[in-house]
Simulated assay, not measured.
Amino acid sequence: MALSYKARRRWALVILLVGMPAYIVAAVTAVGWLERPSFLMELLIYVGLGFLWALPFRFIFKGIGQTDPDAEPPDANKTDRQDPSV
């Protein structure tokens, strides 16, 4: 069962506000357990972990920045202005 657009937006928000900070703390803790690697190696580890966290959530974030595909298109014939002849 596919998630609706609204559900994907909500899950994306939860992932970004809760999941990403938790993942950052876990990544920093995991690298901290290693003896301090060289700067370049540490950078490669963080870049690799940065890609890894996003892979499982690609389907949730895909298309979130677009307009809702299930929403009704705005009616071009409707206007909010009053008729000037009245």
Rank of each mutant, 00 (worst) to 15 (best):
M1W: 00
A2Y: 15
L3D: 01
S4F: 04
S4P: 00
Y5K: 03
K6I: 14
A7I: 04
A7F: 01
R8N: 01
R9D: 10
R9H: 12
W11C: 09
W11K: 14
W11V: 13
I15E: 06
V18Y: 11
V18R: 03
G19A: 07
P21N: 00
P21E: 02
P21L: 03
Y23N: 03
I24Q: 12
A26P: 01
A26I: 12
A27L: 02
A27G: 06
V28G: 10
T29Q: 01
A30G: 02
G32Y: 12
L34F: 10
E35L: 13
R36W: 14
P37K: 08
S38K: 11
L40M: 04
M41H: 09
M41Q: 14
E42F: 05
L43M: 15
L44H: 11
G48C: 07
G48E: 05
G48L: 00
L49Y: 10
G50S: 05
G50I: 07
F51P: 03
F51G: 15
W53K: 13
W53V: 14
W53P: 06
W53Q: 15
A54N: 14
A54T: 14
L55A: 04
P56C: 02
F57H: 04
R58G: 07
F59C: 11
K62G: 08
G63Q: 00
G63E: 14
I64C: 07
I64F: 05
I64R: 10
G65H: 13
T67F: 15
T67S: 15
D68L: 05
P69V: 00
D70R: 06
D70Y: 06
D70E: 14
D70L: 07
A71P: 08
A71K: 08
E72T: 12
P73T: 00
P73F: 00
P74T: 09
P74I: 03
D75I: 04
A76K: 00
K78G: 01
K78F: 03
R81H: 11
Q82W: 10
D83I: 06
D83K: 05
D83C: 03
D83L: 08
D83V: 06
P84Q: 11
V86M: 13
V86W: 13
